[in-house]
């Protein structure tokens, strides 16, 4: 499945919906979306990953980039990651740097 990253901003929440396979060849698409919302006045960056089937280390690199780019005041959420993506987050210890939730409603609260 082709990779897509679609962003939208509502009030102070930026959402990026990721789907397909996030690897070295598709990571630049994701990075571009992150850059497009950097500098906006947001407090939360939410990654909707329900349809994200795979994330390589190159993809994780963009997640770290997001965290750094947004600064300490912006909270990073990963919503309903699939098992393989969650496994990558946990194995590399990045799950400590993001908030992983099952559904988007948990973020909006």
């Amino acid at each position: 499945m082709a990779f897509t990253a679609i962003s939208e901003i509502n009030d102070d929440i930026a959402k990026i919906t990721l789907s397909g396979e996030l690897d070295a060849s598709t990571a630049p698409i994701f990075k571009e979306e992150v850059e497009s919302i950097a500098g906006q006045d947001i407090s939360k960056l939410v990654l909707l990953t329900e349809d994200l089937e795979y994330m390589s280390s190159a993809g994780l690199r963009v997640l770290i980039f997001s965290k750094q780019k947004m600064g300490a005041d912006v909270q990073l959420y990963v919503v309903s990651p699939q098992e393989m993506v969650l496994d990558t987050l946990e194995k590399t210890g990045f799950h400590h740097s993001v908030t992983i939730v099952d559904e988007y409603a948990a973020v909006a609260r």
Partner: peptide, 13 residues
Amino acid sequence: NPTGPAVGMMPNM
């Protein structure tokens, strides 16, 4: 298994 995070991601790990 991992005993810590990947190296270089964040300071003070």
